[in-house]
């Protein structure tokens, strides 16, 4: 399976839990949302599991839903989005 390099970005509480802003990872080029979610919250950063149910992912600056079609490119940005609190 062909894999590509991507960047995982953390914000707010997620950033605090993993203690970093950004991590480089490799994922299968055809990974879907569920696969990315599992990879991030279970395999690579299990410490995020406690907040997983309240988080979303954004791929290349677009919000994604579990049924979203995800298109990944080299250096794509996957952001872990905990509950928003702007305003």
């Amino acid at each position: 399976m062909e894999t590509i390099p991507i960047r995982v970005l953390f914000f707010g509480k997620a950033r605090e839990i993993v203690k970093c802003d950004e991590q480089s990872e490799r994922v299968p080029v055809d990974a879907d949302y569920q696969r990315l979610f599992k990879m991030i919250f279970e395999e690579r950063f299990p410490e995020l599991k406690e907040i997983a149910s309240s988080c979303m992912l954004a791929v290349d600056q677009h919000f994604c839903r579990p049924d979203s079609k995800v298109e990944l490119y080299p250096n794509s940005e996957i952001a872990v989005i905990p509950p928003l609190s702007g305003g």
């Binding site: 509480k13 509950p83 928003l84 609190s85 702007g86």
Partner: peptide, 19 residues
Amino acid sequence: IPIWKKESYADGEHSWKEN
């Protein structure tokens, strides 16, 4: 809008708010 607020309290605790 992806913006987050953290409140730090006098008792030393802090929390990330949720809209």
